[in-house]
């Protein structure tokens, strides 16, 4: 993967979606999505619930299957080829709304699992690396505990570390803070901001507009399966073009 990526050079976009369409039965969830994410770009996707934003990023690592259009991740087109799907997934990290830590494994084991089994690293190496990432998300002292013993914010930070252990080139965040109590949101956002500052390519589905303003290169607004508006954060928030965007922003910033 990395060989191919370097061959393609830094000019090729990290994620490319062209004319992506998806239906759930008769329900058209994604309509003609065109999106290009350059290396190192930070993108925030927002929109009302049911607008297809989660589905969009879940298509990138093929947790959902798109039915038309093409998706290319790091120069690899996403097809039915099982080997490629796994190749892409190794290269794309994902953080879920409900953390999805593995409750039967300790924090450290959660972080070592994929490096050991998928990348076939020896345990010591995997553990050392895991500890480095756990320190980065400031939770190294909890490494021997089980996820059930941690707070939501701590669990989400572990989930971020778990993804980072696979050295992904892109990180997908699927509403990472919406299942958290208010006082825990900041600790997770801080980690995400740091990550962004280090140059990680990120796609975040989130309603944290403060986060969007500080780190995003582009903000995308989706409604009814379409990309309605796409702009740099400043014009997006100060001068939204579409009526629907204006309505949405007034609803979530209104109070």
């Amino acid at each position: 993967m990395t060989e191919q990526a370097t061959k393609a050079g830094n000019e090729t976009p990290m994620v490319e979606m062209r004319g992506v369409n998806k239906w759930y039965g008769d329900f058209h969830v994604l309509r003609d999505i065109d999106l290009e994410v350059k290396r190192g770009e930070r993108i925030v996707i927002c929109g009302p619930s049911g607008s297809g934003k989660s589905t969009l990023i879940r298509c990138i690592n093929h947790l959902e299957e798109h039915q038309a259009g093409e998706i290319v991740v790091g120069g690899i087109p996403l097809t039915q080829d099982v080997k490629r799907i796994e190749q892409i997934r190794r290269n794309v990290g994902m953080v879920f709304q409900h953390f999805n830590l593995f409750p039967h494994l300790t924090v450290l084991e959660n972080c070592c699992l994929a490096p050991m089994w998928v990348q076939k690293k020896p345990r010591r190496e995997a553990e050392e690396q895991a500890m480095r990432y756990l320190e980065r998300v400031r939770i190294a002292e909890q490494a021997r505990k089980y996820p059930g013993q941690l707070s939501g914010g701590q669990q989400q930070r572990v989930a971020i570390a778990r993804s980072l252990c696979m050295h992904p080139e892109v990180m997908l965040f699927d509403e990472p803070t919406s299942a958290l109590d208010p006082e825990m949101i900041k600790e997770v956002l801080d980690v995400m901001v740091e990550l962004a500052n280090e140059g990680m390519t990120m796609l975040c589905v989130t309603h944290e507009m403060g986060f969007a303003k500080t780190v995003a290169d582009r903000v995308i607004f989706m409604d009814q399966g379409q990309i309605i508006e796409e702009n740099a954060p400043e014009p997006f928030f100060n001068n939204p073009q579409s009526e629907r965007t204006q309505l949405f922003l007034s609803q979530i910033l209104g109070h």
Partner: peptide, 21 residues
Amino acid sequence: MSVRPKAHTLGPKPPFWRDRA
């Protein structure tokens, strides 16, 4: 929607044992 190449036809065809379907 204009005519676009289907994602599944893109790129080198994988050997059949790697194709999901």
